[in-house]
Amino acid sequence: MASREGANSRSHAGRERRGQTTLDFAIGMSIFLLALTFVLVFVPGMLEPFSGGAQAETPAVNRVADDLTQRTLSNASHPYVLDAECTEELFTAGVPAECRYDGTTLADRVGIRDFAPVNVTIRGDLPGTTDGESILCYDSGTLKETGSGCTTVLSGGSKPAGSGGKTVSAKRVALLDGHDVTIEVVMW
């Protein structure tokens, strides 16, 4: 106290240095809160793929696609070779007697219950047409790409409502009328 040094030290200990403690607390707390926020944001994203939305449909969509290409529209001795008539009639109201499906709606014919909407589309790139795949159709027994007078479009089932919903799709390549076509089954 008597010396200049003592007075100096007291004034530091008293006000200025305790002021730094508050600032220090703010910095420490914000670092901690930043880390906590990062962890809380990061962890759900880490677990997200394991709790994916449409996982129940994944086996069903594969089952429908395999069934169509290997049993319903073809037969086990010639898998992936589709019967033209049964393929066309799958998307129309009537059911020919020789085809291995029955029911009125597409969901019935592929064996899917009402609560899971299903869509089946056959696409292909036929020779002599523009490049790139488009939806195929039958015009009185002739396989065509859509856009040029079709009687039966090879696409059926419900349509996905709106956008942004999660869907699960399965793709198979098969032979229809001597052309390789892609069968896509979508469920949601």
Partner: peptide, 14 residues
């Protein structure tokens, strides 16, 4: 000077 030494203690804890 102990309060002065604790100047960065909370930051370190954070």
């Amino acid at each position: 000077d102990r309060p002065a030494d604790r100047g960065q203690a909370h930051t370190l804890e954070g």
